[in-house]
Structure formats: C-alpha cells, structure tokens
Design a protein around this nucleic acid. Sequence first.
DNA 1: GGTTTCATGAGATTGGGTCTCAACGTAGGG
DNA 2: CCCTACGTTGAGACCCAATCTCATGAAACC
Lengths: 141, 141
Amino acid sequence: MTATRIPDRLTSQGRRLTRQRVIVAEALASAKRAQSAQELYERIQSSHPTLGRATVYRALEAQVQDGMASRFEREGHVSAYIACDAEHHHHLVCTKCQRVEDLGEAAVAPLLASVGRRHEFQVDHAALDFYGLCRRCRRKR
Amino acid sequence: MTATRIPDRLTSQGRRLTRQRVIVAEALASAKRAQSAQELYERIQSSHPTLGRATVYRALEAQVQDGMASRFEREGHVSAYIACDAEHHHHLVCTKCQRVEDLGEAAVAPLLASVGRRHEFQVDHAALDFYGLCRRCRRKR
DNA sequence: GGTTTCATGAGATTGGGTCTCAACGTAGGG
DNA sequence: CCCTACGTTGAGACCCAATCTCATGAAACC
C-alpha cells in the first residue's frame, strides 16, 4: 500500500522511533477518511489504553512536519488529519462522508503560476482543500 | 468605499439593525488586514467598552452567513475575518503582515471546472486561500 | 551496560469560542 | 404614538480541543 514503510519515514530529522508513533501512524494510515486527533485517540484507546492523548497530538504534529500527513480544518475549529505520501498534493474533502481524494500538484500548477505572476505574490503554502460532495455521496441525493 | 452602505446589508434575512452590529461591521470594514474576533473585540473595547465579546462573535458569524465577510483559519486554530463585498472571491493572505488581497472568481474558475469534470466532485465551498508573502513583504527580505 | 537525551503519559491549564438568561431595543401593527 | 412580540444584547459561566508540566521511561549511541 505505502511505498515506503512507515517506520523508515518516522525517523527523519533525528526523530526517535517509538512504539507509540508507529501506532499513531498506522492508525492514521489505515483510515480511509480524515480523522480528528480526538477520533484517532479514541480509536487507539481500545487497543492501547495507556497511550496518552498528548502523545497522539505530538505524533500527528510530527507527521505533518515531516510531510507524512496533512492537516486541515473541520467545522467547529477542529483539526482533521489524513495520511499522505511525500509528494505534495491537495485534497478533495467530502463534507458528507469525510472521505478524501487527492488532487495532483499538476492540476493546480497553472493557477499558482498565474497568481504569482499577476499579483506578485509568492505563494508559500497553498492548502487547496476543496470541500464538497464526492461522487458516491452525490449519487445518494 | 463600499458600494452598498453597511446598514442596508446588515438587515438581510429578517435580521434586526442594531447599533452593535453596525459597530462591528464598521470595525471590520475599516481593517486593512485579517482580524481575529479577539483582536476586533479589543479594538472595539477602547471606543465602546460595554459591547460584549459574545456580541462580536455573533455579529461576525452573521456577517459570514450573509456574505459580508469571509472567515479563514490562522495558525493556532484561530479564526480570522475579512470584510468583502457580495460577489464571491478568494484571498491571498500574507502570513507576514496579515494583509489580504482578493483573487477574483474568474481566475479560479478553470481549476474548479476541471476538478468537477475529472473527479466527478461537486465543489461546494472552495475556500481557496493562498498563504504566502505579498509583494511588499517580499521586497523587505 | 551505562549514559545521554528525547519521548511519554496523566493530569492540570490555557484560551478561543459558545451558551444561558434576564434585561433590552427593534420592528411592525393597531 | 403606544404596545406587543420577539430577536438581540451583555456578563459570566461553561465547553472542549489543544497545549503544557514534569517525573518517569525508553531509544540511541558509545
């Protein structure tokens, strides 16, 4: 499924490989949809009751920093996370079922270029997350 | 400056025109950069010490609903607001000086169309907020 | 195995945001 | 112009996601 094995990707930047971070990473990677930290914490609780909440938050933060996951904002000021591979891409987030599709950098590049050119604006972090209905949920209507 | 006068736009959808909402709307409209609710509250405090915090939050929420303002997420899970006119558009947010430029719907339309077509994804709310350095801050580097 | 140093976990703390409810003020009808 | 109905306000209590604290634990490196 994942090209690089999880443990290898966790040890970047002199980070230590711990049991807990592997657990969090696997839990996130096996999720098919965006998960809030709280949801992940609760899911992990059932199999690893001693793993702390703060650890989940720290692990997710580390994954975002290392490019293993991406964070975006859900309604109600809650962060949601999704595992993603190293290459940069954007997301189509279904507001109904919370499933996430990827949108390649290529599709977005022309827009970024024109923004940089026409506004002299150096786009740093363009979190192009599109919220809407995925194909499946659209048909259910 | 604003095409439509503020009081007129506040009374949509059977909303009552109150002194407080005018104050909040004017405070936001006169801001040149994105403001958090807290920042606006503090600014308003100095001239209107009795205006409550909850009122600021409610007024901002109402403005977002009525399309008079747009909300996006700042670092640290804080909402920031910017006044904007009725037509839909996106934003270039400078992460250095918090100034906001508009990006017209037209510039973005092709991307939205291709997303809808190629992914069969019905984009509902595409908050295309680009974060980066504006021209001014770029030159200072 | 010993040592260093970073990570963990339990709970306390923070802080943005929301809720509650009595008092108020706007809008609309008579 | 007054009266009534009902949305709005303000002060503070409350909520809860996220962060911090610090003693304990465990990687990593020798």
